[in-house]
Design a binder for these strands. Sequence first.
DNA 1: ATTTGTACCGTGTGGTGTAATGGTACAACA
DNA 2: TGTTGTACCATTACACCACACGGTACAAAT
Lengths: 126, 126
Amino acid sequence: MEIMIDIEDSTPLFAQLIEQIKKAVLDDKIKPGTALPSIRQLASDLQLNTKTVAKAYRLLERDSVIQTRGYRGTFVHPDAKANCKVDLNEWVTDKLSGMISTFRESGVTDSEIRIAFANVMNNRSI
Amino acid sequence: MEIMIDIEDSTPLFAQLIEQIKKAVLDDKIKPGTALPSIRQLASDLQLNTKTVAKAYRLLERDSVIQTRGYRGTFVHPDAKANCKVDLNEWVTDKLSGMISTFRESGVTDSEIRIAFANVMNNRSI
DNA sequence: ATTTGTACCGTGTGGTGTAATGGTACAACA
DNA sequence: TGTTGTACCATTACACCACACGGTACAAAT
Protein backbone atom coordinates (compact mmCIF):
# COMPACT_ATOMS: atom_id res chain seq x y z
CA MET A 1 0.00 0.00 0.00
CA GLU A 2 1.50 3.29 -1.07
CA ILE A 3 0.40 6.09 1.20
CA MET A 4 1.82 9.56 0.90
CA ILE A 5 1.30 12.12 3.65
CA ASP A 6 1.93 15.76 2.82
CA ILE A 7 2.82 17.76 5.90
CA GLU A 8 2.60 20.99 3.91
CA ASP A 9 -1.02 20.32 3.00
CA SER A 10 -3.49 22.17 5.19
CA THR A 11 -5.66 19.04 5.32
CA PRO A 12 -5.25 17.38 8.72
CA LEU A 13 -2.95 14.39 8.68
CA PHE A 14 -5.57 11.97 10.01
CA ALA A 15 -7.96 13.16 7.28
CA GLN A 16 -5.35 12.54 4.59
CA LEU A 17 -4.91 9.04 5.94
CA ILE A 18 -8.64 8.36 5.80
CA GLU A 19 -8.88 9.69 2.25
CA GLN A 20 -6.05 7.54 1.01
CA ILE A 21 -7.18 4.35 2.68
CA LYS A 22 -10.67 4.83 1.26
CA LYS A 23 -9.18 5.49 -2.14
CA ALA A 24 -7.06 2.35 -1.92
CA VAL A 25 -10.16 0.32 -1.10
CA LEU A 26 -12.17 1.80 -3.96
CA ASP A 27 -9.28 1.17 -6.35
CA ASP A 28 -9.08 -2.48 -5.24
CA LYS A 29 -5.55 -2.00 -4.02
CA ILE A 30 -6.56 -3.48 -0.67
CA LYS A 31 -9.37 -5.99 -0.67
CA PRO A 32 -11.95 -6.89 1.98
CA GLY A 33 -10.58 -9.27 4.60
CA THR A 34 -7.02 -8.10 4.10
CA ALA A 35 -5.07 -7.19 7.21
CA LEU A 36 -3.99 -3.57 7.53
CA PRO A 37 -0.68 -2.57 9.10
CA SER A 38 -0.87 -2.11 12.84
CA ILE A 39 -1.26 1.39 14.25
CA ARG A 40 2.32 1.42 15.53
CA GLN A 41 3.65 0.02 12.29
CA LEU A 42 1.89 2.54 10.07
CA ALA A 43 2.79 5.41 12.38
CA SER A 44 6.41 4.37 12.18
CA ASP A 45 6.34 4.05 8.38
CA LEU A 46 4.73 7.43 7.85
CA GLN A 47 6.62 9.22 10.62
CA LEU A 48 3.37 9.98 12.42
CA ASN A 49 2.31 9.81 16.01
CA THR A 50 0.49 6.60 16.89
CA LYS A 51 -2.48 8.67 18.06
CA THR A 52 -2.89 10.27 14.67
CA VAL A 53 -3.11 6.88 13.01
CA ALA A 54 -5.35 5.57 15.78
CA LYS A 55 -7.74 8.45 15.17
CA ALA A 56 -7.97 7.65 11.48
CA TYR A 57 -8.56 3.95 12.21
CA ARG A 58 -11.23 4.78 14.79
CA LEU A 59 -13.19 6.87 12.28
CA LEU A 60 -12.75 4.33 9.52
CA GLU A 61 -14.14 1.65 11.79
CA ARG A 62 -17.12 3.81 12.71
CA ASP A 63 -17.87 4.09 8.99
CA SER A 64 -17.50 0.31 8.65
CA VAL A 65 -14.65 0.60 6.18
CA ILE A 66 -12.35 -1.39 8.44
CA GLN A 67 -12.82 -3.77 11.36
CA THR A 68 -10.67 -4.09 14.44
CA ARG A 69 -10.72 -7.60 15.84
CA GLY A 70 -9.73 -7.04 19.41
CA TYR A 71 -6.05 -7.68 19.79
CA ARG A 72 -5.72 -9.57 16.58
CA GLY A 73 -5.25 -6.64 14.30
CA THR A 74 -7.23 -4.55 11.86
CA PHE A 75 -8.88 -5.80 8.68
CA VAL A 76 -10.72 -4.36 5.74
CA HIS A 77 -14.48 -4.62 6.25
CA PRO A 78 -16.39 -7.08 4.02
CA ASP A 79 -18.60 -4.28 2.71
CA ALA A 80 -15.81 -1.73 2.64
CA LYS A 81 -16.29 -0.66 -0.96
CA ALA A 82 -19.96 0.13 -0.46
CA ASN A 83 -19.39 1.87 2.86
CA CYS A 84 -16.67 4.06 1.41
CA LYS A 85 -19.29 5.81 -0.64
CA VAL A 86 -21.54 6.61 2.29
CA ASP A 87 -20.60 10.13 3.25
CA LEU A 88 -21.74 10.92 6.77
CA ASN A 89 -20.32 14.41 6.54
CA GLU A 90 -22.39 15.25 3.51
CA TRP A 91 -25.55 14.19 5.31
CA VAL A 92 -24.66 16.31 8.35
CA THR A 93 -23.80 19.29 6.17
CA ASP A 94 -27.05 19.09 4.22
CA LYS A 95 -29.22 18.86 7.32
CA LEU A 96 -27.41 21.72 9.03
CA SER A 97 -27.48 23.84 5.92
CA GLY A 98 -31.23 23.64 5.63
CA MET A 99 -31.83 24.48 9.24
CA ILE A 100 -29.41 27.39 9.26
CA SER A 101 -31.06 28.84 6.16
CA THR A 102 -34.37 28.76 7.99
CA PHE A 103 -32.84 30.53 10.96
CA ARG A 104 -31.32 33.24 8.81
CA GLU A 105 -34.56 33.82 6.95
CA SER A 106 -36.24 34.33 10.30
CA GLY A 107 -33.83 37.15 11.10
CA VAL A 108 -31.65 35.21 13.51
CA THR A 109 -28.13 36.60 13.63
CA ASP A 110 -25.21 34.38 12.70
CA SER A 111 -23.73 35.25 16.05
CA GLU A 112 -26.86 34.03 17.80
CA ILE A 113 -26.83 30.82 15.83
CA ARG A 114 -23.21 30.21 16.77
CA ILE A 115 -23.86 30.84 20.45
CA ALA A 116 -26.91 28.58 20.52
CA PHE A 117 -24.88 25.91 18.74
CA ALA A 118 -22.05 26.17 21.25
CA ASN A 119 -24.50 25.92 24.13
CA VAL A 120 -26.14 22.81 22.73
CA MET A 121 -22.80 21.14 22.08
CA ASN A 122 -21.80 21.75 25.70
CA ASN A 123 -25.15 20.60 27.12
CA ARG A 124 -25.55 24.02 28.70
CA SER A 125 -29.34 24.39 28.77
CA ILE A 126 -29.83 27.97 27.64
CA MET B 1 -36.24 54.10 33.49
CA GLU B 2 -33.80 52.61 35.97
CA ILE B 3 -31.29 50.43 34.19
CA MET B 4 -28.36 48.91 36.01
CA ILE B 5 -25.45 47.44 34.09
CA ASP B 6 -23.08 45.13 35.95
CA ILE B 7 -19.66 45.06 34.37
CA GLU B 8 -18.61 42.22 36.68
CA ASP B 9 -21.42 40.01 35.39
CA SER B 10 -20.34 37.52 32.77
CA THR B 11 -23.49 38.27 30.80
CA PRO B 12 -22.61 40.45 27.80
CA LEU B 13 -23.46 44.10 28.31
CA PHE B 14 -25.76 44.30 25.28
CA ALA B 15 -27.63 41.24 26.56
CA GLN B 16 -28.10 42.82 29.96
CA LEU B 17 -29.54 45.87 28.26
CA ILE B 18 -32.01 43.78 26.26
CA GLU B 19 -33.09 41.88 29.34
CA GLN B 20 -33.74 45.01 31.33
CA ILE B 21 -35.61 46.84 28.62
CA LYS B 22 -37.81 43.80 28.07
CA LYS B 23 -38.39 43.57 31.79
CA ALA B 24 -39.31 47.25 31.96
CA VAL B 25 -41.84 46.73 29.18
CA LEU B 26 -43.37 43.69 30.83
CA ASP B 27 -43.59 45.52 34.16
CA ASP B 28 -45.38 48.45 32.47
CA LYS B 29 -42.60 50.81 33.43
CA ILE B 30 -42.34 51.92 29.81
CA LYS B 31 -45.49 51.75 27.75
CA PRO B 32 -46.03 51.23 24.02
CA GLY B 33 -45.55 54.40 22.02
CA THR B 34 -43.20 55.92 24.55
CA ALA B 35 -39.93 57.32 23.25
CA LEU B 36 -36.78 55.62 24.41
CA PRO B 37 -33.56 57.53 25.11
CA SER B 38 -31.36 57.93 22.06
CA ILE B 39 -28.47 55.57 21.54
CA ARG B 40 -25.93 58.25 22.37
CA GLN B 41 -27.89 59.40 25.39
CA LEU B 42 -28.26 55.92 26.87
CA ALA B 43 -24.65 55.07 26.14
CA SER B 44 -23.58 58.21 27.96
CA ASP B 45 -25.84 57.52 30.94
CA LEU B 46 -24.66 53.94 31.35
CA GLN B 47 -21.02 54.62 30.50
CA LEU B 48 -21.25 52.29 27.51
CA ASN B 49 -20.02 52.52 23.97
CA THR B 50 -22.65 53.70 21.51
CA LYS B 51 -22.14 50.51 19.54
CA THR B 52 -23.07 48.35 22.47
CA VAL B 53 -26.36 50.20 22.90
CA ALA B 54 -26.94 50.22 19.14
CA LYS B 55 -26.54 46.45 19.08
CA ALA B 56 -29.15 46.01 21.80
CA TYR B 57 -31.57 48.35 19.99
CA ARG B 58 -31.01 46.56 16.69
CA LEU B 59 -31.91 43.19 18.20
CA LEU B 60 -34.87 44.61 20.09
CA GLU B 61 -36.20 46.05 16.87
CA ARG B 62 -35.78 42.73 15.08
CA ASP B 63 -37.90 41.17 17.80
CA SER B 64 -40.47 43.96 17.37
CA VAL B 65 -40.11 45.13 20.94
CA ILE B 66 -39.10 48.60 19.83
CA GLN B 67 -39.43 50.61 16.63
CA THR B 68 -36.93 53.03 15.18
CA ARG B 69 -38.59 55.76 13.16
CA GLY B 70 -35.82 56.91 10.89
CA TYR B 71 -34.19 59.94 12.34
CA ARG B 72 -36.99 60.71 14.71
CA GLY B 73 -35.94 58.45 17.51
CA THR B 74 -36.82 55.08 18.95
CA PHE B 75 -40.18 54.11 20.40
CA VAL B 76 -41.70 51.16 22.18
CA HIS B 77 -43.53 48.90 19.73
CA PRO B 78 -47.34 48.79 19.98
CA ASP B 79 -47.27 45.03 20.58
CA ALA B 80 -44.14 45.15 22.69
CA LYS B 81 -45.53 43.25 25.65
CA ALA B 82 -46.60 40.31 23.53
CA ASN B 83 -43.40 40.26 21.51
CA CYS B 84 -41.26 40.28 24.63
CA LYS B 85 -42.41 36.77 25.36
CA VAL B 86 -41.39 35.36 21.99
CA ASP B 87 -37.97 33.85 22.49
CA LEU B 88 -36.17 33.35 19.21
CA ASN B 89 -33.12 31.89 20.92
CA GLU B 90 -35.13 29.19 22.59
CA TRP B 91 -36.55 28.12 19.26
CA VAL B 92 -33.10 28.00 17.67
CA THR B 93 -31.71 26.06 20.60
CA ASP B 94 -34.50 23.50 20.54
CA LYS B 95 -34.20 22.88 16.81
CA LEU B 96 -30.44 22.54 16.96
CA SER B 97 -30.60 20.32 20.01
CA GLY B 98 -32.82 17.80 18.28
CA MET B 99 -30.71 17.66 15.18
CA ILE B 100 -27.45 17.32 17.07
CA SER B 101 -28.87 14.48 19.14
CA THR B 102 -29.69 12.68 15.92
CA PHE B 103 -26.18 13.19 14.64
CA ARG B 104 -24.63 11.88 17.83
CA GLU B 105 -26.84 8.82 17.85
CA SER B 106 -25.63 8.10 14.33
CA GLY B 107 -22.06 8.02 15.56
CA VAL B 108 -21.04 11.40 14.21
CA THR B 109 -18.23 12.90 16.24
CA ASP B 110 -18.71 16.23 17.98
CA SER B 111 -15.63 17.40 16.15
CA GLU B 112 -17.18 16.50 12.82
CA ILE B 113 -20.40 18.27 13.71
CA ARG B 114 -18.46 21.40 14.61
CA ILE B 115 -16.50 21.35 11.37
CA ALA B 116 -19.61 20.83 9.26
CA PHE B 117 -21.32 23.65 11.14
CA ALA B 118 -18.38 26.00 10.57
CA ASN B 119 -18.36 25.15 6.87
CA VAL B 120 -22.06 25.86 6.50
CA MET B 121 -21.81 29.14 8.38
CA ASN B 122 -18.99 30.25 6.12
CA ASN B 123 -20.70 29.13 2.92
CA ARG B 124 -17.71 26.96 2.15
CA SER B 125 -19.24 24.16 0.11
CA ILE B 126 -17.07 21.36 1.46
C1' DA C 1 -27.01 73.80 14.13
C1' DT C 2 -28.13 69.86 16.54
C1' DT C 3 -29.80 65.32 17.04
C1' DT C 4 -31.36 61.06 15.05
C1' DG C 5 -30.16 55.97 13.55
C1' DT C 6 -26.87 53.83 10.83
C1' DA C 7 -22.65 52.40 8.51
C1' DC C 8 -17.78 52.01 7.79
C1' DC C 9 -12.76 51.71 9.09
C1' DG C 10 -10.12 49.69 12.87
C1' DT C 11 -7.86 47.36 17.79
C1' DG C 12 -7.48 44.25 21.65
C1' DT C 13 -8.82 40.58 24.95
C1' DG C 14 -10.47 36.35 26.27
C1' DG C 15 -12.59 31.94 25.45
C1' DT C 16 -12.73 27.66 23.02
C1' DG C 17 -11.81 23.94 19.91
C1' DT C 18 -8.64 21.43 16.68
C1' DA C 19 -4.61 19.05 15.51
C1' DA C 20 -0.64 16.89 16.68
C1' DT C 21 2.81 15.65 19.70
C1' DG C 22 4.89 13.01 24.04
C1' DG C 23 4.70 9.29 27.56
C1' DT C 24 2.68 5.36 30.14
C1' DA C 25 -0.22 1.47 31.05
C1' DC C 26 -3.58 -2.27 30.35
C1' DA C 27 -5.78 -6.97 28.90
C1' DA C 28 -6.01 -10.17 25.18
C1' DC C 29 -4.09 -12.59 21.71
C1' DA C 30 -0.04 -15.54 19.02
C1' DT D 1 7.67 -12.44 25.20
C1' DG D 2 6.09 -9.50 21.88
C1' DT D 3 2.34 -7.45 19.55
C1' DT D 4 -2.42 -5.93 19.27
C1' DG D 5 -6.00 -1.92 19.97
C1' DT D 6 -7.18 1.15 23.45
C1' DA D 7 -7.26 4.32 27.39
C1' DC D 8 -5.33 7.73 30.35
C1' DC D 9 -2.17 11.63 31.75
C1' DA D 10 -0.22 15.82 29.55
C1' DT D 11 1.51 20.08 26.34
C1' DT D 12 2.11 23.09 22.24
C1' DA D 13 0.61 25.93 18.36
C1' DC D 14 -2.87 27.74 15.77
C1' DA D 15 -7.21 29.72 14.31
C1' DC D 16 -11.83 31.49 14.85
C1' DC D 17 -15.15 34.25 17.06
C1' DA D 18 -17.66 37.22 20.59
C1' DC D 19 -17.45 41.28 22.95
C1' DA D 20 -16.37 45.86 23.70
C1' DC D 21 -13.98 49.62 22.52
C1' DG D 22 -12.50 54.21 19.47
C1' DG D 23 -13.10 57.19 15.63
C1' DT D 24 -15.42 59.12 11.62
C1' DA D 25 -19.02 60.02 8.39
C1' DC D 26 -23.65 60.29 6.31
C1' DA D 27 -28.71 61.78 5.20
C1' DA D 28 -32.95 63.07 7.27
C1' DA D 29 -35.43 65.01 10.73
C1' DT D 30 -36.17 68.90 14.49
